[in-house]
Structure formats: structure tokens, C-alpha cells
């Protein structure tokens, strides 16, 4: 089996946190800003996106809003879990009592088919 060598990269030589934000990250920031506005206020960041100029600044905002979305979903899941016991009780009640099949039931069905 052939093993292909993949050159190792020195992160120091490739990284540039001061690189100007590219169009893709700018767009991601705008999309996340739109998402942030739809979250409960307690999950909002206090980051002013128009001041973001570098990739290093961009990632701080991207991480903050992504974590906020995670937090908001986790809260919602916890709320749903709290409500679940009552829902489960209601669901069981909806099913009604378990009944044993009548002895003649099977034969009747067969006769119809």
C-alpha cells in the first residue's frame, strides 16, 4: 500500500490574526449578527460588529455568538425536559387502559379477509 507524505506546516509561519477580514468571514459575521438578534436578550453579546477589522477580532465574535446559540438551545432543551413528565403522564392517559384481545377476535378478522 502506498503511503503519501504530507508536508508538515509550521503554524507560526501560516497564522496571521491581524489579516484583514475576508469577504467570507464578513458574511459569516453578518449572518451570525442576524441570528444573535433572534436570540433572547440575555444571550446577546456586547460586541459591536462594525468595529471588527481583523481575523483575530472576527473569530472572537463568531465564537461568542455560536456559543450563545448553543446556550439558547441547551436552555430550551432543559425547559422541554422539565415539562416532559407531565406530558408523558398525559400521553399514557390518552392511550387508555390496556385491554386483552377478545378470544373470538382473531377468527372474526380472518373471516373478513
Amino acid at each position: 500500500m502506498t503511503v503519501i507524505h504530507v508536508p508538515r506546516l509550521d503554524p507560526q509561519s501560516a497564522m496571521d490574526r491581524d489579516r484583514p477580514v475576508n469577504a467570507l468571514l464578513k458574511s459569516q459575521i453578518l449572518h451570525l449578527h442576524e441570528a444573535e438578534r433572534r436570540l433572547p436578550v440575555r444571550h446577546h453579546t456586547d460586541i459591536y460588529i462594525n468595529a471588527i477589522k481583523t481575523e483575530g477580532e472576527a473569530v472572537e465574535y463568531i465564537r461568542a455568538v455560536t456559543e450563545a446559540i448553543h446556550g439558547a438551545h441547551a436552555e430550551a432543551a432543559a425547559r422541554r425536559a422539565k415539562r416532559r413528565p407531565a406530558i408523558e403522564i398525559a400521553a399514557v392517559a390518552d392511550e387508555g387502559p390496556v385491554r386483552k384481545p377478545k378470544s373470538g377476535g382473531k377468527g372474526k378478522k380472518k373471516g373478513k379477509s
Partner: peptide, 10 residues
């Protein structure tokens, strides 16, 4: 990861 996040924000 969380810092890179997704382009599927919606």
C-alpha cells in the same frame, strides 16, 4: 469548532 463555526447559520 465553535470558533470557526458554520456557514449554515440559519
Amino acid at each position: 469548532d465553535t470558533t470557526s463555526s458554520t456557514m449554515e447559520v440559519v
